[in-house]
Amino acid sequence: MTNVISHSVTKGATGRGDGGEAAPLPQRNSQAGRRKSRREARVAPWAFISPSLVLFAVFAFAPIIAAVVLSFQNVQVFGGGTWVGLQNYQQMLTAPLFWTSVWNTIVFTVGTVPTSTALGLLLAVMLNRKLPGRGIIRSLYFLPMVVSGVAVSLVMVWMFNSDDGIVDAFLQTIGLPRIDWLSSPHWAMVTIILAVVWGRIGFCMVTYLAALQGINPSLLEAAQIDGAGNWRRFASITWPLLNPTTYLLIVLNIVFSLQAFDVIYVMTGGGPGFSTTVLIQYIFRSAFTDGKMGYASAVGIFLVVALLVLTWLRSRLSRKSEDFA
């Protein structure tokens, strides 16, 4: 990257951008030009990345650092805070509801990430073929992604209503028993997972579809000529080549799942009981209901660290599997 930029900047410095030979310059001017080029080569990358760097610093890094500082304080919504050291973290680790939230977050993540990724892949493979109305079908699957999460959740509340929801009515029609989708602590999490997976499949599908279309067809044709069947071609060629996309989707889906808030907030409010209270919900109630901003920040930092560890682990696993391949 640096070489490319350096080369182009150097060319620019000669006043020629046509790719032709630069005219010989006097020695002194040449040294000054090289210094200038080197300086520009050092500056240029920063100039390019500085807008996003500034945005990240202001809107991501600064809040994270601020949250770290806050997590060591006892602080209300506003007014002065007092330094309490690790007290918030100690309190967090001994709070039963914190561990309930951690467990619910794990269940929710395990329930949503592999399911939405796998179903997205399945749909992408199906829709990567020539089908009538393929464009429309793709759009339909992607549609939930562009609809407001709150709107989707409100519709889901109606559909999964335990008293007169359309899902239970359908189950009864085909002779199955009714299910207390949202009012049973055992089924509420399942319902939330279904709603989230439905909304996320389209995103996974489109991402996989783009990756599938980037695979060189000659590889698959060569394998076919060598006698490889559909499954063999998928397992030995397509799937390994999709590995970077799978890695990306798993990481993104984990992030989405750990940050999921709107669907749960609207559909169950974390209930019944605590059955759908996940970490983000717990942070929200600690901050805005209990007014404990310092404590909420401590839980937030825990979530960030958990996310980093998960991403690192996934990265390591991905690298190992690539090495093995």
Binding site: A62, A66, G300
Partner: peptide, 21 residues
Amino acid sequence: NALTRRQVFRYAAAAAGTVAL
């Protein structure tokens, strides 16, 4: 001054984003 500095921390932790700043 102290309030403003604290606000930056507090609000960032609460909203952690654009609106906060």
